[in-house]
Amino acid sequence: MAPLTLVETSSGAHSLLLVAGGTPADDAVAESGHEPNGYFWQGVAERVAPQLVERVSLDSESGMFCARADDRDVLVRLGAKLAPVVNDPARLREVVAAAEADGFEFDD
């Protein structure tokens, strides 16, 4: 799941985190005309795992993607969906191209 990390923030509460600007796909993000910030990665999450995003609370900011949930498993599954995109520039380009073809606008 790296560079995503899953942490227990308090008893029974968990967060899935990604520090923006330090991923293998950052150059591909910039080449596609976007900024690799937390809001951009939130949009990616909405595209690759909408059914999981509905079950978490998103609290991203410019420097970090953050999804919170009491259900650790949903965050593990979300991380498993995001990691291939975060780690593979070619996959990132595919996701961005498909999203933009559908009229999706990333909030970056």
Rank of each mutant, 00 (worst) to 15 (best):
L17A: 00
S11V: 06
F65I: 11
V96R: 07
L4R: 04
N87D: 11
Q51M: 09
D59I: 01
T5I: 08
M64K: 14
L17I: 06
V76S: 05
V7K: 07
A101G: 07
R72M: 14
V29M: 07
L78R: 03
V95L: 10
G103S: 10
P50K: 07
G12K: 08
A30V: 15
M64W: 02
S10T: 13
D26T: 02
A2I: 10
L52F: 12
A25D: 00
F65P: 03
A30W: 01
A25E: 00
P3W: 02
P84I: 09
L78M: 09
R55K: 14
L16W: 05
D71G: 05
A69E: 11
V44K: 00
E35C: 03
H34M: 09
F65H: 05
E61H: 12
G21D: 09
P89H: 12
A83C: 12
A25P: 01
P24F: 04
W41S: 06
S57P: 03
E94R: 14
F106M: 09
R47A: 09
D59W: 01
D107Q: 15
V19Y: 03
L17T: 01
P3C: 12
C66L: 12
V19P: 00
G21T: 03
G103C: 11
L52H: 09
A97I: 07
A49Y: 09
G43K: 03
V85W: 07
G22T: 10
E46C: 04
N87Y: 07
D70H: 15
F106T: 06
A49D: 10
F106Y: 13
A80Q: 15
S10D: 12
P89S: 13
G38S: 05
V53K: 02
G63S: 13
S57G: 11
E35W: 07
E54P: 02
V74W: 08
P89I: 06
V29R: 02
V96G: 10
D26R: 03
A67K: 11
V44S: 01
L52C: 07
S57N: 10
L75H: 09
A28M: 04
D26K: 03
V7D: 07
A101T: 13
G21H: 00
D70A: 15
V44N: 01
R55G: 02
D71H: 07
L78F: 10
T23M: 12
A49K: 08
A90V: 14
S10G: 06
L92N: 08
A49W: 07
H14Y: 14
R68F: 10
E35H: 08
A49H: 11
V19K: 10
E46T: 09
R91Y: 06
L6R: 03
V86D: 00
V76Y: 01
F40S: 04
D27A: 15
P84R: 06
V44L: 08
R72Q: 15
L52T: 03
V74P: 04
E105H: 10
L18F: 00
G63P: 06
D71C: 04
A2F: 10
V85S: 03
G38Y: 02
A98K: 15
